[in-house]
Design a binder for these strands. Structure first.
Lengths: 327, 327
DNA sequence: ATTGGTTATGAAATCGGTCGCACTTCAATA
DNA sequence: TATTGAAGTGCGACCGATTTCATAACCAAT
């Protein structure tokens, strides 16, 4: 079934059939004749042929480090919800945190395979930036700020800053911090800086040293909490860069006879389901992950429509979730 | 940059350039000449044109109910890991548990947009089956058995059967069960049947009534545990169809002064990260989600290669994870 | 009567590849 | 020496749509 056969069956030209599907000029009679034939045959225009001819794929590429993760999963769902309203499809690539794969997919995608790209990376190398600069298709970065690029991200700095101030207000004076690698701009660098600045302002600059780096897992949080406790045994508050780390920390502390939150108050980031698993639930920071995915798509769509996007960056606010505050 | 320009620059025919990229006969000199031009220009064949001509898209469509879920996320990662080894791309569609969307995507995909489809549905309607029957492209169902279809799934029945027997062996005599909707073949029907048969064989058929249905959330598990406890107040064991439900149940029980696991032993299914969150960790069942994704792709690839697949169904075993067994 | 704008139409070019086919060359086999 | 066949080559058709263009019909305004 191709357009020529349909045209012949309906007694019109191929162009007329094309117009039928693309809202071109067409008389009522022909429209009806074509409609009938299309219905009978179940004909659908070949997407591949359309892509070739129009040079639009109606697909966007999404590159993420992993997908079996609460935060990224939610970003992807946000992306998809807006995307298929617009009749676009999503080509998903997972890099497993391998920067080489990231570049590989980026180049594959911007070789006109898709109309646009959404990139959720963690660490940006100069190579990344170069590639983004001369990309043939628009790219939106999600999850962190990147100079000169369209990006949607959260205000990680202020989130952790406020969280730390909250701890201080609650009278916790001896804070510790379990962070992510500093190359990770959002989860690593910004959150730690928020912590540092808050303790600094409160006149407790020395607390910035109560700091260690963990991976994004419960096990790593457990281990690093142990290391931190051995070094600084009189902590009364612990802020972690992610909920998983925080969970691991709680397990370590309780496993070693330390009362949480009475002796040590613990907080994470992410407002994930697991943050609500402890009793009482963790203090955490809520991120609008779905929203950031949705906005990323909107920015992309704007660029696909007109040449330029009105928004170049969108910074989303976070809010602290403190289950104890209700009581 | 198209193949004709490259051919001209290299002083060869278009066909030669095509052969260069597709390992056809080509002399060493021409190969070198083309290689040079390709390198200089950075030329890459148009994927759209290739698709149109060869009628192969090198994409497979994946339809899932949601993506921000531990189990499905892991299936998707399994799929992707095998997929891009084979140089295929993944088109991801999320249905949000809407059977209408499921059919919509199925029809969009099998309208030759992709070379194959992997479908992770929950509930199969007759409409689904009809659509699968006359699909233009091969489909592999993942997560549940479906007569006459290529499928990869877990042995849910025996998993819950064994789990229930374990509870009985541990001396738990008054069991309850929180299940999923029965239309969900794997998580709903099979797991409940495993429970029923196990208690039946143990001469406790009446326990099959200690049964209620919850949704796939912690909140629903919490609520339904409450309902169950009010109806049957002397339970000493509770088996839940998923870890989320089990977590909710634990929270309810502990929130009402019931000791877990001393008074009531609780188990879930899924071996998810959250199952390890409670102290002590939940009893749960390990599913090889990544593996099922990988196998689904392999089955698809076999069908894409030769016409038929050797494997028509693959049933994966599960094993019980009992953290208490170590002590 | 002429001009001009809008609607309607199909022939033909185009997008950028692959593939069937016919042809040549040259070494191996009978 | 004749025959085979594998390697190497390019022409031209083809995949299935969209889009330009030339043309025509129709109606209103000059």
């Amino acid at each position: 079934m191709n357009i020529a056969e349909i045209a012949e069956m309906a007694g019109v030209s191929r162009a007329a059939v094309s117009r039928y599907f693309n809202n071109g000029y067409i008389s009522e009679e022909k429209r009806e004749a074509i409609r009938k034939v299309v219905e009978e045959t179940g004909y659908r225009p070949s997407i591949q042929a359309q892509m070739l001819r129009t040079k639009k794929t109606r697909m966007i590429g999404v590159i993420v480090p992993k997908v079996a993760s609460a935060s990224i999963g939610r970003i992807v769902e946000g992306i998809l919800s807006v995307l298929n309203e617009s009749g676009y499809q999503m080509l998903l690539a997972v890099t497993q945190n391998d920067p080489r794969k990231e570049l590989e997919y980026l180049s594959a995608f911007h070789g006109k395979q898709v109309d646009g790209v959404i990139l959720a990376a963690t660490v940006f190398t100069p190579e990344h930036k170069r590639m983004l600069k001369n990309s043939a298709v628009p790219v939106v970065v999600v999850g962190q700020y990147l100079a000169g690029q369209c990006a949607v991200y959260h205000d990680d700095y202020h989130a952790t800053y406020e969280l730390t101030k909250l701890f201080l207000e609650k009278g916790r004076q001896r804070l510790g911090f379990i962070g992510a690698i500093r190359q990770d701009q959002a989860a690593g660098e910004d959150r730690y800086r928020g912590f540092c600045d808050a303790v600094q302002e409160a006149g407790h600059g020395e607390l910035a040293d109560h700091y260690t780096i963990a991976e994004f897992t419960v096990a790593s949080g457990y281990e690093k909490a142990g290391e931190l406790m051995k070094k600084y045994d009189n902590l009364d508050g612990l802020i972690c860069a992610t909920d998983s780390m925080a969970l691991g920390a709680v397990r370590y502390l309780r496993g070693h006879g330390i009362k949480v939150p009475e002796q040590i108050l613990v907080a994470g980031h992410g407002d994930s389901e697991i943050a609500r698993m402890t009793i009482p639930p963790l203090i955490t920071v809520h991120y609008s992950y779905e929203k950031s995915g949705e906005i990323a798509v909107q920015m992309l769509m704007e660029q696909l429509g007109r040449g330029e996007s009105a928004m170049k960056e969108v910074k989303l606010g976070c809010h602290i979730v403190d289950p104890g505050a209700a009581s």
